[in-house]
Design a protein around this nucleic acid. Structure first.
Lengths: 342, 342
DNA sequence: CCGCCGGGGTTTTACGTATAACGTCCTGCG
DNA sequence: CGCAGGACGTTATACGTAAAACCCCGGCGG
């Protein structure tokens, strides 16, 4: 007996509410928009609200957007949601957005069967702003040079072409990793560096170099690795089987790479961490799923998303966005130990 | 010399294009909407298109939605994107959507800091349909009993309250797993079953029971496990350390649980697969990241998303949606072997 | 007694698009 | 010669909301 609401029929409009309550449409709009102080009596306001609730009224978002010129929708541009890090970024952004009843829509994953040729085609007219990871470079260009406020995630501070930026203190994380390994006694390092071009990875390399720079007797070789376990395993195999003294520590740009490195070591008959230490980055679920559990750098992915959304809201509001890098923390687990005696 | 387009100013409307081209707004709408055969000359149509391109015209989606009453937007309701399976479902759905210039928006992840109290608040008025996983039960109720077409993913076929359904042949997958283990010689099973209430998991249990039902001499004990590695490890530890003859095969509802089970076994001094075999479900990236690589059931997650979107488009179009379960495939890797002699 | 003010509304308009309904030539045919 | 009808557009309208502009009435200071 839910008949009162026409199930297949059109939903009630503000005008329906108005006539049902015996007032004008403008009054409904004022009351429901919370702009009625001193313009509508308490009694009428209550009546309108009750009627709206009774009819199950929901404002038509398209009409509202058309009128206001704003859509309360932000676009999040990330390389791929299958990367747990970005899934968590999305969760953070969307949580903050929900609190300000904003929506978050994702840019169709570029590695799919192909997004719309034009990034705007499905999105632009319906957006208030863009939050973009620096890893999604190709998609990103399309949003540059528009009037849309752009918040960049983990991007080069030298690049000023954005309204706000939220960065992780990646350099500090890499320094913590290096200090940890140095303290354990390691001297021969290999840096399994992501082949994806992005500031996040560039800064890892420079931070590692800087941290080792002032320690004499240390060596580091950089080996590029793809961002997946199987590919990383091959790269790590080459690094470990290379001629010359074997490295004792594999510093990886990412937990996926670290997992691949562990597999490579084991396949070569080396034990982790007794024969070779391995460190990751990100602290994904993977880090505690593999054996041994990875020593890695925990990144507050949700906070990145939250901060990104907060920054965008601030910009849209004319306020100045929050500044300062987000802190990261080394998590020492079972994949690191002192180097072998030999 | 990009001056012609007012960068900070308002974007051109169809009326701007019209006056720039010296025609009426209606003509612009007809041409750009591809409804001009026999109503507008080839020459004028070309002129309009060129002018639109030159001014960088993009139709205002809010206005269009208001006029048409449809938004070309679907809602995807999933428990969490951090679950790789659903991230892949999203990728599939969004790829198909993009091809039909549809948008896909996600229901804010329920485990976040809390979504809008009302699921519709940020969504309903702007939706053409809903695609929902049966695992997102709580959120789902809110969308039942509305006029929105609902496509269910992996849900109980007995539940008829939806416009279309796309299911995986989970039962077949479980049967393949069981046959594989039986062929290896296993007789004492433990089913590490997800504690999350959902058809996908229920069907695993019944399929396992059915497959073992006609084999005398087999035993199976069901142990509930949470859907995360750490929790699953505890559950598996209890199962393995229980009094009585030790099980030789751990059948897990999910790769995360399987990973936990492997860790539990190793911690108890058991080798996988020599002392105990472990199987997973889903074939996530995790399955090939851990050691040993998991024997598991590969699910075509992207296909689920694609099929879901295709079904929704069909329903919206008045066509009949595709039917039939999607096939799954056992992937035999290194976590299964014949049971120990003893 | 008049003008003014403020409380409590209403009328009206605009947002940008899609499309139904309506002209206006021009050509060809009866 | 008149007019039917196609080719080519145009004018007008509606979608649902927000908000600016307006209106009415009772009370009160001058």
């Amino acid at each position: 007996m839910k008949a009162p609401e026409p199930l297949g029929g059109p939903r009630p409009t503000s005008r329906d509410v108005a006539s049902a309550a015996g007032v004008s449409q403008a009054t409904v709009s004022l009351v429901l928009g919370d702009k009625w102080r001193g313009r509508v009596s308490e009694r009428t306001a209550g009546l309108v609200r009750d009627t709206a609730r009774r009819l199950g009224y929901r404002p038509n978002l398209a009409a509202r957007s058309l009128r206001l010129g704003r859509t309360r929708t932000a676009l999040l541009v990330v390389p791929a949601l299958t990367n747990e890090f970005f899934a968590r970024v999305y969760a953070g952004a969307s949580a903050v957005a929900a609190r300000h009843d904003f929506g978050v829509v994702l840019y169709p994953s570029p590695q799919g069967t192909g997004p719309a040729k034009d990034p705007f085609a499905s999105a632009r007219a319906a957006l208030d702003g863009v939050i973009a990871s620096s890893m999604a470079t190709d998609a990103l260009d399309a949003f540059r040079g528009t009037d849309l406020p752009l918040v960049m995630l983990d991007s080069d501070p030298a690049d000023q072409d954005c309204a706000a930026r939220v960065n992780l203190d990646i350099a500090d994380g890499m320094r913590q990793v290096t200090d940890h390994l140095l303290a354990l006694g390691h001297r021969r390092f290999v840096h399994l560096a992501s082949a994806v071009p992005s500031w996040t990875f560039d800064v890892r390399a420079t931070a590692l170099a800087a941290a080792l720079g002032d320690r004499p007797g240390t060596t580091v070789r950089t080996v590029p690795a793809p961002l997946d376990v199987a590919g990383a395993r091959e790269a790590a195999t080459r690094a470990l089987a290379a001629p010359g003294p074997r490295p004792t520590a594999l510093v990886c740009d990412d937990d996926l790479i670290a997992a691949g490195a562990c597999k490579a070591a084991r396949r070569l008959g080396l034990r982790v961490p007794e024969d070779v230490s391995v460190t990751g980055f990100d602290d994904l679920a993977l880090a505690t799923a593999v054996e041994p559990e990875l020593t890695t750098v925990g990144l507050p992915a949700e906070r990145v998303g939250e901060r990104g959304m907060e920054a965008l809201l601030a910009v849209l509001d004319g306020r100045t966005p929050p500044r300062g890098d987000l802190p990261v923390a080394l998590r020492v687990r079972a994949s690191t130990a002192p180097p072998p005696r030999s």
